[in-house]
Amino acid sequence: MKGVNLFGVAGAARVLSVAVLVTTAVGCTASTGSAGGGSAASCTYRVEYAGRTYLGSEAKGFVLGARLGGATVPACDDTPGHGDDSKRATPATAYAIKGVDPGVAIALKDAGDDVIFVDVSSGTTLPEIKKLIRGS
């Protein structure tokens, strides 16, 4: 006995596409493996300096410039319910990056040789900053 395809070839392809999308969507939901029932995300590496918030990004080959002054690495509680809720902000020292305006990006000595911090409100993209670094 021969089977009958009620959807036709195009219809069968659409049904298969929907099935794949539903399976993918289910696989991308957040897990709730913690005792608190919530999903915890890893904290972003950020620094607060001169009233601005800077996010950490990878950029190799930059040269530290002048010491700018005190900065703060905000506290991070990325594992709720694990007894680390008392972590406090950490003081740091901000440094200029040779060839880059500190209003756009800064560096911290302790952050590593390949991490810069980009001001989130500067509107400058990481590729633009990398060009400034190479041009210095």
Rank of each mutant, 00 (worst) to 15 (best):
Y45P: 00
G99P: 08
G33P: 00
A105Y: 02
D78E: 11
S57K: 14
L68P: 06
A92Q: 12
A107F: 01
G51P: 00
P102I: 09
T72N: 03
T79M: 02
T32P: 00
V73L: 08
G81V: 12
S39E: 05
S34T: 14
T90L: 13
V120K: 06
R46E: 09
S57Q: 14
D110T: 15
F117R: 11
Y45H: 10
T32D: 00
G112P: 05
T125C: 00
D110A: 15
V115S: 02
D84T: 15
I106D: 02
G70P: 01
A30H: 05
V118M: 05
R88L: 15
T29V: 08
G99H: 06
K87A: 15
F117M: 07
V104R: 07
S39R: 11
T79Y: 01
V100S: 04
D101V: 10
A35Q: 04
G83T: 12
C43L: 09
D110N: 13
D113L: 09
T93W: 12
P74D: 05
P74R: 12
G83Y: 01
S121Y: 01
L108D: 04
G38H: 09
G99I: 12
G70K: 15
D101S: 13
D101R: 14
A40M: 02
A71T: 07
V104L: 04
G36S: 15
G65W: 09
A107N: 05
A94L: 09
T93R: 10
I129R: 01
S122R: 11
T124I: 10
A66D: 15
L132E: 00
A30T: 06
G81K: 09
P91M: 09
T125Q: 02
A66T: 14
R88M: 14
V100Q: 04
D78L: 08
A30G: 03
D85N: 15
P102S: 12
